[in-house]
Every structure is written in structure tokens, then in C-alpha cells.
Amino acid sequence: MRPDLPLLQAESLSREFDLPGGGIFARKRRLEAVSEVSFSIGRQEVLGLVGESGSGKTTIGRMVMRLLPPTRGRILFDGVDLTALSGRALRAQRRRFQMVFQDPYASLNPRMRVREIVEEPLVVHGIEPDSSSRRDRVARLLERVGLSSRDMERLPREFSGGGRQRIGIARAIACGPELLVADEPIASLDLSMGAQIINLFSSLVDTDAMSLLFISHDIPMVRYLSDRVAVLYRGRIVESGPTRDVLDDPRHPYTRLLAEGTLPEAGEAAPSNAGSEPGPTGLCAFLPRCDRALPECRLAPPPRLSEGEVREVLCHLPRGESSWSPVTLLSQGSPSDVPATPSR
């Protein structure tokens, strides 16, 4: 344990995918789904990750979980570079971070009963080897997510969408992870059940010292639960900082859109989603939609500016303001002096 370090540090993570081609002779096109993303999550901290559909949130979550290798960049978990681990060393770390998947049903083995699904991580990691106390533990987990011990012998398909989502949550918290990546964990739940799950997360964080990466489209819930928030647009973090500051006084025009939940013109669908294809321009990806663009937005890539080392924005707009200054790249690579705030 390195209590002096943030639990998780993601440094300049990028991930490219091959775009489906137009034929065997067509030039392969690549999509940079995540570009140069850096953030950290402190112990007992909740980082909200928001952003439009297709902006790379799940991809980031999967890289953090080591389910998908980054194309570039590093992930330090408790000071250890996860991207360099494999085999037994990686397996030993696995119980310390867990994920709640966005598509619950697809992430559950349809042939396994709920009890087997939830106890699997306990078995794999040799926690609770005694089968009857393991059973008790599974029962308690199910109750915590609003299911009942009588659900243990049922199959995933016998549950409603929200039921499956909660099976996934019970599984993810089964072995008491230090970091939970929760990808849209309450999207299929009714308001009351959603509230129960959010209360559960709060107590895991505030009482059991878990850290949480909370991926969600539900802005009011992000505001309620998260200590800090990072806003993703086409694979880049365009704004980050303490949740209240960012959502009450958004500086990036996209954050403003999210925070206000404004209705777009009822005309054509605005262009949205997908990371940027690595292109020559490097100009702001939001430019085509931006109603506040300055002349320099069409000339140069947006600078990364910071305010008081706690807020950051990737945008030309605050440039003239004295409290905002360019982020220096120097802090990179000296993790010991990086506080639990986003770097770069």
C-alpha cells in the first residue's frame, strides 16, 4: 500500500481501434477512441466520468480494469504499473479492482445460477473457502443490492433488466474491491432502487474506503455522488475538477450543454459520438458544434488550461482570464508530487 499516492493514476492513456474497412484494398482507417487521457482517483474518492455517447468512457473503464490494453500510456494502481503486469502478478491484483458492466445481460454467463455468478470471484481469489459461510456472504450481498437470498438458484434470464444489473453489482463488490469501475450502474433501475444502489456505493466509499469511477449519463446523480468529475468529448477530457465547480460553473461549452441539459434544435441530428480520427488539424473536436468559438479556435488546437491546480479545461475560451494558466507538462512523470487531482 502506498497511502501517499492516489489509488489510481492514468497517464496519457490512448486507445486506437481499426475502423471497419470498405474492402480489402481500402486503406485501413484507425479511430483514436481515447486520446491522451490522464486522471487520478484518490482513496475514498468518487470520480464521475461523463461525456457523450461514444466518447470513450467504457473504453477507459476497460483499460483501467486491464481488460483492454492501451495503445499508449500507463495505468498505475497503488503505485504499480498495471500495463506491465501479466499472469500471476496480474491475477493477484485483480481482486482489488472490479467492474460493473454497462450491458448487464451480456456480461453474465447465461448458464450460471446467481449464486455461482456472485461467488465466482470469492472462489477464484480463495476468499471464504468454506461453502456455507460463502453462501451466507452471497445472501448478504444479494440483500445489499435489493435482491433476496431466494434468488440464488435462479438464472439471469429469469430476471428483469434491473434485476440483472443488480446481479452484476453484487458480483463486482463481492470480494471488497478497493476500486470499483461502475459503468452506467443504475441506468436500468427505477428511481427508488437506483437510490438504494447509490446509497450502497456511498457507504462502500465512505465507510469501507472504496474508490469509485462512476460512469454515467445521469448528471444530477453524478453531482450527488462524485467528488470530482471528468468530462469526455470524442476521446479527450475537455474539462475536469471538483464536481460542484464544474457543473455549477462549466467552462467548456460542451460541459455547459451537459450541465444545462439543453434541448438541441429539433432539426437534424447534431453530429455526435465517436472519437476523432487522428487527423492533421488537431483543432478542437467540438468546434463544429460550438456557438462560442473564437477566431483562434479555427487556427490552433485548444490549450489545456488549469485554475488553481484543481480545475482543468481544454479550450481557448478562458485563456484571457488571469486565474487560468497553461498546464505545464513537467508534472508528468513525477507521481509523488501529484495530488489527487487530474494531472495534465
Partner: peptide, 19 residues
């Protein structure tokens, strides 16, 4: 549940489309 995985702005576009 057609909008669970959509951000607010895209969700509103879908609602507008349905309307």
C-alpha cells in the same frame, strides 16, 4: 428503455425524432 445509454443531448434528439 431506449435512452439508458444516451447522453442527455443525444437522448433529446431521439425523443424529438420519435415525436
Amino acid at each position: 428503455e431506449p435512452t439508458t445509454a444516451l447522453d442527455p443531448t443525444v437522448a433529446l434528439q431521439i425523443l424529438a425524432l420519435l415525436a
